[in-house]
Design a protein around this nucleic acid. Structure first.
Lengths: 319, 319
DNA sequence: TTGTATGCGTTATCAG
DNA sequence: CTGATAACGCATACAA
């Protein structure tokens, strides 16, 4: 494989000059520059980035941790990140974790191994102390509300948003409200749970643990929800569904089961995905692309910052 | 940042010994080994992988090119690849391309930059000669039928599978058969188009260009399909739908439009995704996880090989 | 504007 | 079983 030395020899200059041409340094004579470029062309030379990274200490590579790649939620987020990465000449490394802590640690370790400059967590499962361990090794950015200001993040206030949705349903007369969520344990899920509990306390409503449906991410996850609703002798009259995919599935199931929406069951989705528009589902628009953009910028900046993003209520036909 | 030299000093051995311990060489005395390990523990030392890669010439990193991360098809494939990667102590680098040639070239370039050892194309847009350019720089594996044996691949014979489906519909009495596909131009799409054309020639059927619906990947892409079907004064009586997502969307749309399936419109999906089972859609099971596994193995092996995978017909209620 | 020399952190070679 | 040293390919301080 041809290296910088070969190019230098071929172009009749020093390696320094070659390096300078390669990195667009200002003061180089046109002849030498041309000679170098010609040698590069001829030999089809390409820098060995391992050497460059070893020398410079950085890689222009940003890691992105996300649980699934097959969920539209993350697809949009990733899109926003990727668009911004292009503008700043950075490349993205995707780490798909399936919410497994071990995989998240692998991603973090790449920070320590100097293979990436920064790491963006779209979502995480591992405990906070594990993340903290890796602070010294590179910038870490999260998509959740951070208590201490130790790290950058861009987030939606899920407590506020959830509470807003609950209040809306309450005003519409609903007293038996349940919700569907992806998992019970994430920071964002915990915020929503807190909102839910505060809501029922506030209005002196009974707490039905079976009004909470978890593992709701995909279209087909709705089957389990509707089965439970059907079996219940005191089913909820309204559901907050944290994924439009699942909300759409619920709408489909309800058609089959002749449960009418919103009369028998009201629905509010989240994300404002195309499928929500298609199926006329009331939902919250969350500007994932914008979040992606901000989060990338935070990943390459030195300063630490917190950015709050607000979700916008989109009224359609399911409430 | 602590390096191998620091560890050597701390453990009272040479850097060579440290390196040997780190890489599990056989002949090392237990005391020295223990001393090194202790120093590593104490200092929280981690190899700089850029240096390792520079020296050894490889990275244990495999790139995976896929157009979208939000399509279940690729999700499954990726899963298969990832599972196998773990077994072999390799890490995966995902490149999301949105079918853009530029992005694919970026991934290829990482091969040349020595940042990855091999590159797996789950799907590609760029022309064959571009791929060929990068043969010298690392192993490339594809998920499509390769004419010359220049590169490894694992693939489904889409011509055969498509023809089988068409014949099946023909035997059921269908003469006006259309199909929905993601894009017109990919290798796999071209194979299916060839099957379709041969089929109508074989049976002396008229060719309706409007029986081919492209950009069909997601659930909501079905809207356009059904709108076109409705507007047509000579609509197809059966549709081959190369994504179960879209097939499911079609089923949903047809319920709204009171088009009955399979009487008014028969449907065969592809992939055998959970949603197809949920909605009782006749489809082809394609073992994506197995494809993923094979493709990974090919990526780390020296030999070039071609592996054919067969799709299995799953009869349900939409034909 | 250009070149020489040094070092980034590691593994491989070779001698012991 | 162990260690000194060269080399991987490159960017940069320094000198010219």
């Amino acid at each position: 494989m041809v290296n910088i030395k070969d190019i230098a020899k071929l172009a009749g200059v020093s390696v320094t000059t070659v390096s300078r041409v390669l990195n667009n340094y200002p003061y180089i004579s046109d002849e030498k520059k041309a000679a170098v470029l010609k040698a590069v062309q001829m030999t089809d030379y390409q820098q060995n980035m391992n050497a460059v990274s070893l020398r410079t200490g950085h890689t222009s590579l940003i890691g992105v941790v996300l649980p699934f790649s097959h969920h539209p939620y993350f697809g949009l987020l990733l899109n926003g990140i990727a668009n911004e990465a292009i503008k700043h000449n950075h490349k993205l490394l995707l780490f798909q974790t399936n919410y497994e802590v071990e995989k998240e640690i692998e991603a973090l370790r790449m920070l320590k191994e100097k293979r990436i400059d920064a790491l963006i967590f779209c979502s995480r499962t591992c405990d906070w102390p594990i993340i903290q361990e890796y602070f010294p090794y590179g910038k870490i950015v999260l998509c959740e509300k951070i208590r201490d200001g130790s790290v950058s993040s861009t987030f939606v206030d899920h407590y506020k948003t959830f509470m807003g949705a609950l209040d809306y349903l309450y005003d519409k007369g609903h007293r038996k409200i349940g919700y569907c969520i992806g998992r019970r344990s994430g920071t964002n899920s915990l915020d929503r749970e807190a909102a839910y509990k505060d809501f029922i306390t506030k209005h002196n409503l009974p707490f039905h643990s079976d009004y909470i449906y978890d593992h709701c991410l995909t279209f087909e996850d709705s089957i389990k929800v509707i089965n439970k609703v059907k079996e219940s002798n005191n089913p909820p009259s309204a559901l907050l569904v944290t994924s439009d995919q699942t909300a759409a599935g619920i709408v489909t199931c309800c058609q089959k089961e002749t449960i009418s929406i919103p009369e028998d069951l009201a629905l509010i989705g989240f994300d404002n995905q195309p499928i929500a528009k298609m199926m006329n589902i009331t939902t919250f628009d969350i500007p994932y692309k914008e979040i992606g953009k901000k989060v990338f910028l935070q990943a390459i900046k030195d300063e630490i910052s917190q950015e709050e993003i607000t979700a916008t209520f989109i009224e359609r036909n399911t409430v």
